[in-house]
Simulated assay, not measured.
Amino acid sequence: MSRVRAAVLNDLEALTHLLDEYRQFYQQPSDLEAARHFLSQRFGLGDAFLLVSENAQGEVDGFVQLYPGLSTVGLNARWTLNDLYVSPASRGTGAGRALMESAAQLAREHGVPRLALMTQVGNARAQGLYESLGWQRNHEFYSYLLNV
């Protein structure tokens, strides 16, 4: 069973490699320096909640990252679960489920009534996990992107 905890600065090296693998999963080129810089900014600015999972050997093997935001319609907070990644060697061990459950618990502890996420249409494995945890696919809104 995975242990989930808040990430700390001492996790930076392990997280750098995981973030780089995560980005490569989404067809981005490997860039360890940029990944380390991005994570250092998150730690420095405190603008994200970052949780890590540890395997039985105490090694960081996954992470989930949440970004706080607001809902004008709901007049409350709404966090975006922007990233979930588990190393290939730890997939199928429950690490992803533990990270998702911990993210939901953290939101509840902060009084956040809703989490939102997006995933690629073809990422059936992730979709299966999300739906098994009670996440519902949004059929009322389209998602749009604009490169500026």
Rank of each mutant, 00 (worst) to 15 (best):
R3A: 14
V4W: 01
A7Q: 02
D11R: 08
L12R: 06
L12T: 00
E13H: 08
L15W: 02
L15R: 02
T16V: 05
T16Q: 03
L19G: 06
Y22S: 06
Y22M: 08
R23V: 03
R23D: 07
Q24R: 14
Q24L: 10
Y26C: 03
Q27W: 07
S30V: 01
D31Y: 10
L32G: 09
A34M: 13
H37P: 08
F38I: 15
L39S: 04
L39N: 05
S40Y: 09
Q41L: 11
R42G: 03
R42F: 04
R42H: 13
F43K: 01
F43A: 00
G44K: 04
G44D: 14
G46F: 06
A48Y: 03
F49W: 11
L51T: 07
V52G: 05
V52R: 08
V52F: 06
S53C: 07
S53M: 00
E54M: 05
N55H: 07
Q57C: 11
G58L: 03
G62R: 00
F63A: 07
F63K: 01
Y67P: 11
P68K: 00
P68A: 03
L70C: 14
S71R: 07
S71T: 09
T72Q: 15
T72M: 09
G74N: 11
L75N: 12
N76S: 14
R78F: 07
T80L: 15
L81D: 08
Y85I: 09
S87D: 04
P88Y: 04
A89W: 10
G92D: 09
T93Y: 01
G94S: 08
G96R: 06
M100S: 05
S102G: 15
A103R: 03
A103M: 00
A104R: 11
L106D: 05
A107N: 06
A107I: 09
R108Y: 10
V112L: 10
V112F: 10
P113H: 04
P113S: 01
R114M: 09
R114V: 08
L115I: 08
L117Y: 02
M118I: 14
Q120G: 15
Q120L: 14
Q120Y: 13
G122F: 07
G122K: 02
A124I: 10
R125F: 10
A126D: 12
A126K: 07
Q127D: 00
Q127E: 02
Q127K: 04
G128Y: 04
G134C: 00
H139T: 13
E140G: 08
E140K: 05
F141A: 12
L146W: 12
L146F: 14
V148H: 12
